[in-house]
């Protein structure tokens, strides 16, 4: 518990530091340019409170959208990555394909995605899923490739089926790397979410997502900046959730050598 409290304290200190820097930048810009450029934290906070309902709705919509995209990316990417990494034959045939598609930014395909899926919810999800999917695939594949052979032998010698090898060895062995990769790709995912909600959310109201909220209030710096803060908090939320998930699902990673004879 004290560990969690200490961690929360560090986050608070970090937040205070960010707010301090923000204040400094806002003040510096205002004094050098002689007009308000970057709204100060206080002004932004007031704008957030004044638009709390819309902001909360935008945050909720974005969070739900990101959660669904993350879940879909995991459900599709994890099995594919594990199979490609663990089965040398599939690795030979499918890896070049994955490496070819992996660096392709879904943003570059927005027009085709729009034409294919229209301007509904599906297309926004597709853009975020595409970005996260490859991160999960590549992480799972890399981890599955380097599984300790004796771990596989120990279950094979008990007569394990292919499915049992995946269940008892491949999945648990790779989960920490995959969750770390997912955590690292939260930043990319949030960027894609923002793009999906602005470029492919033109017909929506400001409460339909943080990207849309920011775009809708483009000419109200204080309000749109409140949306940016919302995006940062959304990223932080998923980062923390994924870290907690790793602590629960990969408990073995967090126990130290306590010894014994």
């Amino acid at each position: 518990m004290t560990r969690t409290l200490r961690l929360a304290f560090y986050y608070l200190v970090a937040m205070a530091a960010v707010i301090g820097l923000w204040w400094g930048a806002s003040w510096l810009l205002e004094t050098t340019r002689e007009r308000e450029i970057l709204p100060s934290p206080w002004v932004t906070f007031r704008a957030a409170v004044a638009n709390l309902g819309t902001l909360a709705s935008a945050f909720g919509s974005s969070a739900l959208r990101f959660l669904v995209a993350l879940a879909v990316a995991f459900l599709l990417g994890l099995p594919l990555g594990l199979v490609v990494g663990f089965e040398p034959k599939l690795d030979r045939y499918l890896s070049p394909l994955i490496y070819l598609l992996y660096p392709m930014p879904p943003v570059a395909l927005l027009l085709f995605l729009y034409l294919a899926f229209g301007l509904g919810e599906v297309v926004r999800l597709v853009v975020v899923v595409m970005a996260l999917f490859f991160q999960v695939v590549v992480a799972a594949q890399g981890a599955a490739k380097y599984i300790v052979p004796s771990h596989v032998t120990s279950v094979r010698s008990a007569g394990a089926t292919r499915w049992q090898i995946y269940r008892h060895v491949v999945l648990p062995a790779t989960l920490p790397s995959v969750l770390t990769a997912a955590r690292v790709s939260v930043g990319l995912g949030i960027t894609m979410l923002y793009i999906a909600e602005t470029k492919l959310g033109l017909l929506l109201g400001p409460g339909a997502g943080l990207g849309r909220f920011i775009e809708y209030y483009t000419f109200r710096g204080d309000i749109s900046l409140a949306g940016v803060v919302g995006l940062a908090l959304l990223g932080l939320l998923f980062y923390v959730v994924l870290e907690l998930l790793e602590r629960v699902l990969c408990r073995w990673k967090f126990v130290g050598a306590r010894g014994g004879a």
Partner: peptide, 23 residues
């Protein structure tokens, strides 16, 4: 196995019962 082949993500009990469960 040479290094016992224990699975680091399973507890002592789960490791000891692994072969039983697989069968």
């Amino acid at each position: 196995l040479q290094d016992a082949g224990l699975l680091p993500w399973k507890t002592v009990r789960a490791n000891a019962e692994l072969s039983l469960r697989i069968q």
